[in-house]
Design a protein around this nucleic acid. Structure first.
Length: 682
DNA sequence: AATTGCTAAGTTTTT
DNA sequence: CTTAGCAATT
């Protein structure tokens, strides 16, 4: 029996309602994951077969965590009842679920079952190529923009403020884009959901199979689902109606990405009998922090009313401060962190600095480095934006399927092997005329004949390189992929290429390290499989779950620098929110797009990350590019009740504060005086 | 084929 | 300021 006594009454109700539609409105820090995992465990104890349970999350990290926690709750004896591994429950992201279903049935839609998944950068590469083929005299469209619209177009989710030129271009490109993907036996991220939906809509037997399999469905972070995801969920559950969604409309911050908060707000219109359970007892923050959060979010219209409360006591007041410039703000934040560490033994890992845009990280990083504080910047440049990673993955894909033009074109001349842009352009043209892949064109003697002897040699060498390299991979028995590829990259001179092109020795080394680390993870996939299958599996894992490689150890020792968007779901004892200025939070673009609500939710999310202390700050001036621009405090600051805030205004205090070092030690002394019992390092 | 130099643009981004 | 992309140059 799962012990439900540790749950509060609302949590228990949520856990025990296992049939029919349920909406669990889980405010920030109200023990959401606990409820979900307990609910799953409870269902199993009530005799529901684990393999009939499906849990959908938004990140792989969340999925992993949930799996672990369910496993902890359910005794081994019960788990082993289902002897086969497949009997265990499914917890995955929407996208992985899509892959799972598509791998079984995508042939019904005319795709091959061993499709590859294109990451963002690969999609972008494809769009760039398609754009360059179109003759356009006037303004060249921004590929990123076109891709964005294209994605919206596919999701059938156009917004009025989108640039009409981009929309037209995206519409123009779309058929070519789709046929290019098909030709490469590839699908993109959007397709993982869209094709799954199409499959379920068009093949009743597949739908029935899935419905029979996933009889109990739970969706986490439901406020972030988009139209496609909703349709998928509805299709899957409208018959058996065992749908449990968990979410918080107040934490919906991905509207710009197509998330439909209406999915949560209007759930009753699709499931009128839905039982709504509100979780309002917060286990994370002090009441001062919660009062601030409640007061801020109250200003939003159209929400499901919630009041967070806790038994954690009032705690410290919220600290607020104004600075002249963003540099001074950064220095002060770092000083506060070091002060906490020296005076109260607060480790770096208990501190987080939250900001709206990645640009704001720069001055913070400078200040942190100057003070020799270890930090970790979360997010920022995506793993896939690193050139060596992109190249490596493109090599993998090319070796798996040389007819994947996009990947082949990327690596054809990396390192330089006499296949210049001009040559590749011509080959691409030839391939289009002949309606074949670029690789086919390169193999074709007729095509080769059109080139100079030198170029012809280069083409032939490249073709045989691919053909020869493919051979060991096509073998039946496993090979050590890690060492094989390490040798491969050494042989083709890729390592040298990095050293040669990268002037800075340290960055070159770090890029080579990145590459080697990626290769090492190759060995983590099941070694029993055939090389190609193993490679395939690896690629899929890595594409769907990019930050699996993140350095966990470093995280435990560092101050966290993070955007508000990516901090959702996390918590920290001490939180600094910087740059609370009009134009940053709320962001200036929110006015045009009419998304002030979402900006407020962003602020709400930031506030509710804090467990013990919350510090807010803004600047009067901010260096932007080269000039300093004037800033005004965010209107959201006024929404925080005055009696919860303690302003540390420079003006109101002693003017001695000019000297930062002096003020630092003054502050240090004052705390030691206040709390004589506390000694640093205790 | 590779280097240099110019211009333009610069929210958020779970997969 | 910084970075990416492109054109022009050797």
């Amino acid at each position: 029996m799962v012990d439900l006594n540790s749950l509060n009454p609302q949590q228990r109700e949520a856990v025990q309602t296992i049939h029919g539609p349920v909406l669990i409105l889980a405010g920030a820090g109200t023990g959401k994951t606990r409820v979900i995992t307990f609910r799953m465990a409870h269902m199993m104890h009530r005799g529901i077969k684990p393999h009939h349970i499906l849990g959908v999350t938004f990140t792989n990290k969340a999925a992993r965590e949930m799996k672990e926690r369910v496993a902890q709750l359910v005794p081994k004896a019960l788990r082993n009842k289902g002897d086969k591994k497949a009997e265990w429950l499914t917890i995955s992201t929407f996208h992985s679920l899509g892959v799972r279903i598509l791998r079984q049935f995508i042939d019904r839609l005319g795709y091959k079952r061993n499709f590859v998944i294109y990451s963002d950068s690969e999609q972008l590469g494809l769009v760039k190529r398609l754009l360059s083929q179109i003759s356009m005299r006037d303004a060249k469209p921004d590929p990123q923009g076109v891709l964005g619209v294209l994605s919206r177009l596919k999701e059938n989710n156009l917004r009025s403020y989108l640039n009409p030129d981009l929309v037209a271009m995206a519409q123009h490109i779309r058929p070519r884009y789709e046929s290019a993907l098909r030709a490469c036996n590839a699908v993109d991220f959007d397709d993982l959901l869209l094709l799954t939906l199409k499959l379920l809509e068009e093949c009743p037997d597949v739908l029935e199979t899935c419905r029979a399999h996933y009889q109990y469905v739970m969706v986490d972070e439901y406020q972030d689902t988009n139209a496609t995801q909703f349709r998928l969920v509805k299709l899957l559950t409208e018959k058996h109606r065992n749908l449990c969604v968990v979410g918080d409309d107040d934490q919906s911050i991905y509207g710009w990405r197509g998330a439909e908060i209406a999915n949560l707000l209007n759930l009753e219109s699709h499931f009128p009998e839905v039982k709504v359970v509100k979780l309002e007892q917060n286990y994370r923050s002090t009441t001062h922090i919660l009062q601030a959060a409640n007061a801020v979010i109250k200003n939003n219209p159209r929400r499901r009313e919630k009041q967070l409360w806790s038994r954690n006591g009032p705690g410290r007041k919220i600290q607020a401060q104004v600075f002249e410039t963003d540099e001074k703000e950064a220095t002060a934040v770092v000083e506060a962190i070091e002060f906490d560490r020296l005076a109260r033994a607060v480790p770096w890992a208990h501190q987080a600095i939250l900001f709206r845009t990645n640009l704001q990280a720069r001055p913070l990083e400078t200040a942190l480095r100057k003070a020799r504080v270890r930090y970790q910047l979360v997010g920022g440049q995506s793993y896939f934006d690193r050139r060596e990673i992109k190249d490596t993955l493109a090599y993998f894909k090319t070796l798996m399927n040389p007819h994947d033009d996009n990947s082949l074109l990327r690596i054809a001349n990396i390192p330089a092997r006499g296949l210049s842009d001009v040559t590749m352009e011509r080959l691409l043209g030839e391939s289009q005329e002949r309606h074949c892949s670029v690789f086919k064109a390169m193999q074709n003697p007729e095509v080769q004949a059109g080139f100079s002897t030198k170029t012809r040699n280069s083409i032939q060498t490249f073709v045989s390189l691919l053909e020869e390299s493919q051979k060991p991979l096509l073998a039946e028995q496993p090979i050590p992929l890690n060492t094989w590829f390490e040798r491969f990259f050494a042989e083709i001179g890729y390592i040298e290429e990095i050293r040669r092109t990268e002037k800075d020795v340290e960055t070159a080394d770090s890029r080579i390290r990145n590459l080697k680390e990626l290769l090492i993870t190759l060995n983590n996939t099941a070694p029993s499989a055939k090389p190609m299958e193993q490679l395939h599996e690896f690629l899929e894992d890595i594409t769907l779950d990019a930050d699996r490689l993140e350095d966990k150890e470093l995280q435990d020792k560092s101050v966290i620098l993070i955007t508000i968007h990516s901090c959702k779901g996390l918590e920290f004892p001490h939180v600094h929110v910087v740059g609370l200025e009009e134009g940053l939070l709320p962001h200036s673009r929110s006015k045009e797009e009419n998304t002030l609500d979402e900006e407020r939710r962003l602020f709400y999310v930031a506030i509710t990350r804090a467990k013990e202390t919350l510090r807010l700050s803004y600047c009067l001036g901010r260096r932007k590019y080269n000039e300093t621009i004037q800033c005004h405090p965010s209107s959201f600051l006024k929404e925080v009740p005055k009696d919860l805030v303690e302003w540390n205004d420079d003006k109101e205090k002693k003017p001695v504060q000019q000297d930062t070092a002096k003020s630092f030690f003054a502050a240090l002394r004052s705390v030691v005086d206040e709390e004589p019992g506390t000694t640093p390092g205790k």
